[in-house]
């Protein structure tokens, strides 16, 4: 099979982490919680989490599985 089970497991893990980072249980913690460097915490947090997520996806697919 041409799938690399390892990188697929990583990607699913990234997906689940993303759902957690960008949804209900975590978001209220930052809603109206002051500012970070002059930027409202919710905005700063969302863009930061977004960037981290992109980096995680990039890291997860970079590994080439066995052909």
């Amino acid at each position: 099979m041409s799938k690399s089970p390892l990188s697929i497991q990583r990607l699913v893990a990234v997906f689940l982490a993303g759902v957690l980072l960008l949804d209900y249980p975590l978001l209220p913690l930052f809603n109206g919680a002051g500012t970070w460097f002059g930027i409202p915490s919710l905005y700063a947090y969302l863009f930061l989490a977004w960037a981290i997520l992109v980096a995680l996806i990039a890291a997860a697919v970079r590994h080439r599985g066995p052909p």
Binding site: S7, I8, L11, V12, V14, F15, G18, V19, L22, L42, Y43, L46, W50, L53, V54, L56, I57, A60, V61
Partner: peptide
């Protein structure tokens, strides 16, 4: 409504993690 436009782009970002499959 502030951040209300962001899910339109966060959803696809999450979906990208599953695209390889």
């Amino acid at each position: 409504n502030g951040v209300g436009f962001l899910p339109i782009y966060l959803g696809p970002t999450l979906m990208m993690a599953l695209w390889w499959m």
